[in-house]
């Protein structure tokens, strides 16, 4: 019947158009950057990603991304439990606001943080007096990264929490388990794959964040420069080898992320 519904000719045409589109947009460009990076062997690549500046950028990136992901994981668990398991005024508002960062331009997010935490603002000025600089420093970069990846953990946890229901938690509860015990022994094991999936998404987004961090970091080489900022700088300084090498490294992280995503992806999707 499938053959009757769609003739072989149409099928081939559709397949060809889809593959051509994907090849021109995605596969050939990504393949090409790998080829350009490795065409003279592995050592130029290794040399480019182990320069002092690149390694420093890697360390800053990891620090910022891991901190942001830990924060978003704690927030994600709390917020999803609140949304699914509790009733409180403003619940719909919280639910709607959590999605907001996905629709906000990273540059706008960065600008928003400058307007609140910049040194010339009341809050930023007060924090500066306490010795905490947010903008053009790591705290600002962490907040910017948290902003752009904020919904990712929550959005994975909410449907799973809704699906598992409360029967087991109630059983544990009546048997005298405390709230933390119930969470650790019943809820956490039930949501662990969705949690892992959300963390992978959030971490990948955090490692690759560019726009928001570009605004709040001030792009100070050797201090607040992340890997993505390093790529931009090397490209604009005509060091294509360096830009390509670090890009390929980030692309490899992205591919590992994809593999992790297919492993953790909830079965029903």
């Amino acid at each position: 019947m499938v053959g009757a519904a769609v003739t072989t000719k149409t099928k081939w045409a559709l397949r060809l158009v889809a593959l051509l589109y994907l090849a021109l947009l995605l596969i050939v460009p990504v393949g090409l950057i790998f080829w350009r990076t490795f065409q003279h062997g592995f050592s130029p690549f290794w040399h480019s990603i182990t320069t002092h500046e690149a390694l420093h950028a890697l360390r800053v990136t990891l620090e910022v991304a891991i901190t942001a992901t830990v924060l978003n994981t704690v927030f994600g668990i709390t917020a999803s439990l609140l949304i699914v398991r509790h009733a409180f005024p403003g619940k719909r508002l919280l639910n709607a606001l959590i999605d907001l960062p996905l629709a906000v331009s990273p540059v706008v997010a960065g600008l928003a943080l400058i307007l609140i935490y910049g040194r010339l603002t009341p809050i930023g000025g007060w924090l500066g007096h306490q010795g905490v600089n947010v903008i053009f420093a790591l705290p600002g970069m962490v907040i910017a990264t948290v902003f752009v990846s904020l919904p990712l953990v929550v959005r994975e946890l909410v449907p799973v929490l809704e699906e598992i229901g409360t029967e087991q938690e109630q059983a544990a509860w009546t048997l005298g388990a405390s709230a933390p015990q119930t969470f650790r022994r019943i809820t956490l094991p039930a949501i662990r794959w969705a949690l892992a999936y959300g963390i992978v998404l959030a971490l990948a987004r955090s490692l690759g964040e560019f726009g928001a961090v570009a605004v709040v970091s001030g792009k100070v080489v050797g201090q607040t420069q992340t890997l993505t900022l390093y790529v931009e700088q090397q490209y604009q300084n005509f060091d294509k080898t360096g830009a390509y090498a670090v890009s390929v490294m980030l692309a490899m992280i992205a591919i590992v992320t994809l593999i992790a995503m297919t492993l953790f992806r909830p079965k029903e999707r």
């Binding site: 990504v30 950057i33 690759g208 560019f210 993505t228 890009s247 992205a254």
Partner: peptide
Amino acid sequence: VLIDLPFALPTIVAGLVLLTL
């Protein structure tokens, strides 16, 4: 699986990748 690559790839890398072609 590859369809999701643009989500996982940092945007600056996406721009650079397109510039190679």
